[in-house]
Simulated scan of single mutants.
Amino acid sequence: MKILIIEDEKVLADSLKLMLESKGFEAEAVYDGESGEQYAMLNIYDLIILDIMLPKKNGYEVAKAVRAKRNATPILMLTAKSDVDDKVQGLDAGADYYLTKPFDARELLACVNALLRRQGSQVNELAFGNTRLDMESASLICGENSVRLSAREFEVMRLLMVSGEKHTSKETLLTKVWGYDSDAVENHVEAYVSFLRKKLISIGSDVRIEAMRRLGYHLECDEKC
């Protein structure tokens, strides 16, 4: 799970980043609203933690811009403002939840997990055909057979299982798995898809990763799924 932190208090932003990473999340921090909006528009994050009082663009403006682009990424808004009117303004701008500073780290984590569950992002496993992807062990499971996946194999398989029969482009996989600033190319995606195909066969899965020219990849299974 990738989380974007938009917070101008650098110490707080970096502390949040470290805390989230210690819980198994990937996290990036930016320190002004203009940069935050640019990052959010990449649409590669599972959650955005957004402060209101930011330089260049405030959190309300960032949230409105994100929602105007039909980006549905959950937004957890952080602020020192506790007035009801401020909370209403934040929710109207597109925030999903509002957390007032100062807050307890446990409270923040509970909010993060609740928002991810609401999006269907934080679940114990994904399934397609006769095969399950265990999110905790990063394993593909078919009946009594299982195989562990590397970190990138896991992320590629997770995205494919979430999309199912819908196409996932190579560009999307590159951005979400390797990162927008990576030097990885489409051959990297093809190599990891090849690894996954072999692992699916090794456990007797009926799931196939099919490629469609210019559209990317989707899942099919031998029996009707």
Rank of each mutant, 00 (worst) to 15 (best):
D86H: 15
Q89H: 06
T73S: 11
A72G: 10
L42T: 02
K64V: 05
D32Y: 11
Y98A: 09
L91P: 00
Y98T: 03
P74E: 09
T79C: 09
K64F: 04
L50N: 07
Y98M: 07
S35K: 15
M77G: 05
T73H: 07
L78R: 07
D96N: 15
L54G: 07
K81Q: 12
L99P: 04
Y31F: 15
L42D: 01
K56I: 03
D96T: 05
K56H: 06
K69N: 14
A93V: 04
I75D: 00
I44H: 02
I52L: 13
R70T: 13
M77N: 09
D32H: 14
L91Q: 01
S82D: 15
G33E: 07
S35E: 15
Q38T: 07
K69Y: 09
S35P: 03
Q38F: 02
Q89M: 12
K101C: 14
R67P: 03
I49W: 03
N43Q: 13
L50P: 07
P55Q: 08
K87A: 15
L91S: 01
Q89P: 00
R67T: 01
K87E: 14
I75S: 00
G90M: 06
A63H: 10
I44G: 02
L78K: 05
K57C: 08
T100H: 04
K81F: 05
Y97M: 14
G33K: 11
K56F: 01
K69P: 10
I49K: 01
L99K: 06
E37V: 06
V88Q: 01
P102H: 14
M77H: 05
I44K: 02
M41I: 08
V66Q: 08
D46E: 11
E61P: 02
Q38M: 08
S82V: 09
I48Y: 04
E61F: 02
V62L: 06
Y31K: 06
K69C: 12
I48D: 04
I75M: 01
I52M: 08
G94D: 12
A72C: 11
V88W: 01
Y97R: 14
K87H: 10
N58L: 01
K69M: 13
I44N: 09
A65H: 11
K69R: 15
K87V: 11
Q89G: 04
I44C: 06
Y31I: 05
I44W: 00
Y97K: 14
A72D: 14
M53K: 13
G59Q: 05
D96W: 04
L42C: 00
D46T: 00
V88L: 03
L42N: 03
Y39C: 01
